[in-house]
Design a binder for these strands. Structure first.
Lengths: 337, 337
DNA sequence: GTGAAAGCGCTAACAC
DNA sequence: GTGTTAGCGCTTTCAC
């Protein structure tokens, strides 16, 4: 009932050879040890027959290499990061690493604790995605000499690869204005930004991009045009209702700063007649397959998880992750029909 | 640049004690070794000062325990399974395990290979979620004496805990009929099931539940009322268009067998005037926060990932996972306003 | 109260 | 061509 796993020694004695021979055969480096074809075959057969599997604890201890690469993410339960996990696994395996993904719930203390634990299991590299305090994780990694790279949110102590939020926001805003019903100068205040937290790095950059484009078209942006009301659907819903009351109707263009804020927005819109919606153009910074199927046209910005990680792996591969520097990856504008 | 991690021996010699003393102190079992308070304090201080961390490869090798618990899922990139990953981590940590989640892309070969690899890293338990071939994974686990449990899709060689698809489909269908515009007997054929794959265990059970309730209300169900057109949005879209053409309009009630099929359905509906939608009631087996915000009322069935896993952990805890048997967990009906 | 020593399963340098 | 040996870093029994 408790079959104990055969060791390399068990296989060795069954095959009438030594453990080192078995090890060499099973790792494919037996040609250079000039082990005879017959012995090799016999060893392989016996290992297979007895369903031998390597004990990677022991192997890793001896070789001082685990073959593990870790990634920490805020939550699994999120379209963007779960897409990243998927891509991370693929890229890691393609490089011969075994990938480990762990969530840290946006808690800096858990981020650090998780990094420590992963290191105690001897991960050889760490991808730090969307961390609240990337530098604290960097300090841990430096202490133990683990190479790492920040993704999605930048740090100051290691290579970072992030979305070009400024550029993305510019693109989205330009397209929004292009689609908005022609605005008289007096109506320029009807262009609004909604959602996110103003102190967040990403939100900040997006507000900057938004402001930049609106200002270029219509002069300065009034503070009332930007409402970083937070990340919850309820907050966005309330904020939009307040805005509509103030404007006596929908704005002419609305920049929605996350799919979660979009949920709140949609709750407001579904109560309105479809003619009302025709007078406003909507854009969302973030992508959701479902939002594509909404009953009104919606522009979306899709972050490029694949490229973010490809660049990140590149930095790990060539060691440039050791130098603090930030690479920005352009997101994609998605035209929801 | 490559700080090497201090070992227990380094700490021992710095503290002027032996490695076994350090080990005992750092594991809190030094009282029973009657190590003096002062030595203990000194050792702790020095360990902290030098940022000692346990090497879990070595520790696990020696103790023949890794502290790891693994879960395999089809993909991360999926609302249901990413929610499961989140819950899995929480429950595992609460029990003192370190959780590892890996995806297998619905490929039976990868499922088995992944199980083998996790076992080679010496995971002590395995949760097999949504596996295409759970029994193949069970065989691997048995060979190496790793306790495991199937979740979401049942196997015949270990404990399984799955959603009560039959019951959930019954509930959803009942509520759909209740809400459907009163049907004359001659219109009973306007009740339809859409999506999924008929040979899938879950789809089968849902079709059974649907058929059971419809038959009880209106007599037999015609084959044309059930279209397991597959799991893609495009397929569902095409199937619904064909259906509408055949019926010369929407059905009176539509049971949609996944959020992905729902996407296809929504694409069809958005082209229709809202009056047309009022004559059909819609239900989706599966939940998506976004679907909640659609412009028409939608019933949804939400699978209870939390309870599925709680029961699964219970089976691992009390060893009942060794006996092949299946527990069904009831999903929840969600009334989208 | 604490240390010495053996060994977990594996690998690699060295031996012959 | 293949075996012997010395660890990797840790835990635990036994010794004193």
């Amino acid at each position: 009932m408790k079959p104990s796993k055969p060791t390399i020694f068990d296989i060795a004695s069954l095959a009438g050879v030594s453990a080192s021979t078995v090890s060499a055969v099973l790792h494919g480096n037996w040609r250079e040890r000039r082990i005879s074809e017959t012995t090799a075959e016999r060893v392989k057969r016996i290992a297979e027959l007895h369903e031998y599997t390597l004990n990677r604890q022991a192997s890793g201890l001896r070789k001082r290499r685990s073959g593990l690469i870790g990634m920490i993410v805020p939550t699994h339960d999120n379209r963007f990061f779960s897409g990243m996990s998927q891509t991370f696994e693929r890229l890691a395996r393609a490089r011969g690493w075994y990938p480990l993904v762990v969530s840290t719930l946006r808690d800096p203390a858990i981020e650090v604790a998780t990094a420590r634990t992963l290191i105690s299991y001897r991960v050889e590299h760490l991808v730090v995605a969307g961390a609240t305090d990337p530098d604290a994780v960097s300090r841990v990694c430096h202490t133990y000499g683990v190479t790492h790279v920040n993704v999605d949110l930048p740090g100051t102590m290691a290579g970072s690869v992030i979305s070009d939020n400024f550029w993305g926001a510019q693109q989205l805003t330009r397209e929004l204005l292009k689609r908005a019903p022609r605005l008289r100068a007096s109506e320029r205040s009807r262009i609004h930004f909604l959602g996110g937290i103003a102190t967040d790095y990403a939100t900040q950059r997006r507000i900057d991009g938004f402001t930049d484009v609106v200002a270029a078209h219509y002069g300065a942006v009034a503070p009332g045009q930007v409402d970083a009301c937070g990340y919850e659907a309820d907050l966005a819903e309330a904020a939009l209702r307040a805005l509509c009351a103030r404007l006596e109707g929908l704005p002419s263009a609305l920049f929605i700063n996350s799919t979660i804020a979009l949920e709140g927005v949609v709750r407001v819109l579904k109560a309105l007649p479809s003619e009302a919606l025709a007078n406003c153009s909507f854009g969302c910074y973030d992508w959701d397959p479902f939002a594509d199927a909404l009953s009104f046209p919606l522009l979306m910005v899709r972050q490029n998880a694949q490229e973010l990680l490809e660049v990140a792996f590149g930095m790990l591969d060539d060691g440039s992750c050791e130098q603090p520097h930030t690479v920005e990856v352009k997101p994609t504008l998605v035209f929801g029909d």
